[in-house]
Computed example of a mutant assay.
Amino acid sequence: MEADAVYAANGYGLCVNYYNPFECTDEFEELPNSHVFTIFYSRHVLYTSIIAPISGEALSRFNWDEAQLLDFEVGLDRLLHINESDGELLSRIRSQLLVLPREYPYPLTHILLAGESVTHPRFLAILREALDGMENISPANIQTNIPDHGGSAIASKMIDPTFAASRGAALYARRRQEVQPGCTELSECEEMRKRERAGLPLKNEL
């Protein structure tokens, strides 16, 4: 679920008019398929995954199988305690970053970062080297939140990757609290609730 939440936090996969599930369905049906590569990096672990949200919808109940990789031997703490010329660990990180994209049969449409250490300069340098070796990535078509060499993000919406998964989950939870799954209501209902809260008479009482 974390990759889905990061996807949502970066502005993807959440319909605009979520109060109307029918309009949401129409909106997602018009979107092209997404293939999202998420990279989570912390002091202790590298976690990568690829998800294919149905019609681009984040946190969908119906999702394609997720490919995942987890490595507890290449976290930032380990990276910072080696010499920059020590190629063994650097090579392992690059290799781990390439495992899922090389095996995945479809072109990636998104690359998204998460975790408190993912924007550390040493890791970003390794990541950029790894991306150069990914054949199923088209830089002109891919959407990402990877900072460029000047420190800014390629994507227009850059959020703190430390809290990306939490933010995405909260956005989704808000929608589920406001609108129950598979339900909709007349637009007049919200107006009736506002009048009730204000102590005003309802239309049928006038």
Score class of each variant (00 low, 15 high):
Leu108Gly: 09
Pro107Leu: 04
Thr109Cys: 02
Ala155Arg: 13
Ala3Lys: 07
Ser152Met: 13
Asn10Ile: 03
Ala198Met: 08
Glu103Tyr: 00
Pro181Phe: 09
Arg175Trp: 01
Glu185Tyr: 09
Glu66Gly: 05
Ser166Asp: 02
Asn136Thr: 08
Met134Phe: 04
Leu124Cys: 03
Ile111Asn: 02
Glu57His: 10
Leu31Ile: 07
Tyr172Asp: 11
Arg78Glu: 10
Glu29Asn: 13
Tyr47Thr: 14
Trp64Asn: 12
Ile93Pro: 15
Ile137Phe: 01
Ile126Phe: 04
Leu113His: 12
Val74Asp: 06
Glu188Thr: 07
Tyr47Phe: 11
Arg122Phe: 02
Asn63Ala: 13
Cys15Lys: 00
Ala114Met: 06
Glu190Gln: 15
Gly87Asn: 11
Arg43Ala: 02
Pro105Ala: 00
Glu23Val: 15
Tyr12Gly: 03
His149Val: 15
Asp26Ala: 14
Leu80Val: 05
Asn141Ser: 12
Leu100Tyr: 05
Asn136Asp: 09
Ala9Trp: 11
Ala169Trp: 01
Pro181Thr: 01
Gly199Pro: 02
Pro139Asp: 14
Asp65Val: 15
Phe22Arg: 01
Ala170Gln: 07
Glu129Gln: 13
Asn145Thr: 15
Leu76Ser: 10
Phe28Trp: 08
Asn10Lys: 10
Asn10Ala: 04
Asn204Ala: 05
Glu188Phe: 11
Asp160His: 12
Pro107Asn: 13
Ile111Cys: 01
Asp65Lys: 13
Arg175Ile: 04
Asn145Gln: 12
Arg167Ser: 10
Trp64Gln: 06
Arg122Asn: 03
Leu97Ile: 05
Phe123Gln: 08
Ile137Met: 01
Ser95Ala: 03
